[in-house]
Design a protein around this nucleic acid. Structure first.
Lengths: 192, 192
DNA sequence: TCAGGGTTAGGCTAATTGTCCTAATTAGGT
DNA sequence: ACCTAATTAGGACAATTAGCCTAACCCTGA
């Protein structure tokens, strides 16, 4: 197999398994089986489970940054925020089955008192900062971060209940409600 | 030790540990150490770990039902909903450290594909149904369940981000915002 | 062709897991 | 005080865990 390809393969499968089954529950054996390599080989690529976790978080961060950058090309700030909100629709199948990949990981690492907890929260920061910039560009100034947190909060809440109830209509209803909220905020700002 | 007292002690410690560290991560040894009994004795009270989990969920449900019933004594429906929202303030220390006991358990059991997942979601139903009844009594009729889900959703979202950022001011701000939303909904209903 | 480094397989370890059994101890009712 | 049933202690069980080592492989460049 070509150079470093196995490593990328391990990270991809670990990413999936950590999301679907949780970090603690997923064992070396599980990942090795998914990648179709032996556990011994594993050690060549990653010395510890924590190293894999760090690599997975790094990959998740790179993926999200790439997605957000792509949205900056030809959209207005409101359209970008709306695109973020609609991730809940785009990824609804996985969210209903496993929740939000970022929120559930951060929660798990907090309960484990894991050293990588900060890295997981940094994933939240990617969205928080990006949303904050969009609100700032809309003219919300000092309120921008609060509004970013509000959008993030509602995304997390929707994901949590969508997982519990596996309810698509609930997601659609709350996404619409959040978009209405966004329009109302923007309008009331411009009326001033 | 008096009859069945050890059993209650085990359930209480398991409840705490499942909340603070997660179900999967907490071992028999952990619980036994917390209760100060040997692992052998454990088996007399609970045959399997799943039996403990069921007992813990049952206890959590009883605790919540008792709390909700107490609120029904001398409050209006709006005051009751507000009391629910303010759990986020009352329990802010634990929520910032470990998240929502119901949401995090439901998420974990979903990822584990655990048989008790349904029981954990039934814990959500306790709040969902109760909130729905309060909204119904306020006159929201068919919208009651949607509004109940909305309140539940925002509680989950606040708990999730409060855990990630360990941010008390964020909780206070969002609790105020949610109360304002509640007042606005009630007012716009009564204006009709 | 062949040497060398990147890559892999297989197996070992010590610790921990949930589960289970049995003998000893304790407490309550008579 | 004594008997019985409830409770506890201590250890054994196979399975699984993360981590580690070494020998063998195979691809590539000289």
């Amino acid at each position: 197999m070509a150079r470093r390809q196995t490593r990328e393969h391990i990270i991809a499968e670990a990413d999936r398994l950590f999301y679907e089954s949780g970090f603690e529950t997923t064992s070396f054996a599980d990942i090795a089986a998914a990648v179709a390599i032996t556990r011994g080989n594993f050690y060549y690529h990653f010395k510890t489970k924590d190293e894999i976790l760090s690599a997975v978080i790094k990959k998740r961060m790179a993926d999200r940054l790439k997605m957000l950058e792509a949205w900056e090309a030809d959209r207005t700030p409101s359209e970008r925020i709306r695109a973020f909100i609609e991730i809940l629709i785009t990824n609804q199948t996985k969210i209903r089955a496993f929740g939000c990949p970022i929120g559930t990981l951060a929660t798990e690492l907090t309960k484990l008192n894991h050293a990588a907890r900060g890295e997981a929260v940094a994933l939240f920061d990617v969205f928080r900062d990006w949303l904050g910039r969009q609100f700032f560009d809309l003219g919300f100034k000092a309120r921008s971060d609060d509004l970013a947190m509000h959008v993030l909060m509602r995304s997390q809440g929707v994901a949590s209940l969508a997982t519990a109830y596996n309810d698509l209509k609930f997601i659609q209803r709350e996404v619409e409600d959040l978009c209405r909220w966004l329009d109302a905020e923007v309008q009331s700002l411009n009326e001033k």
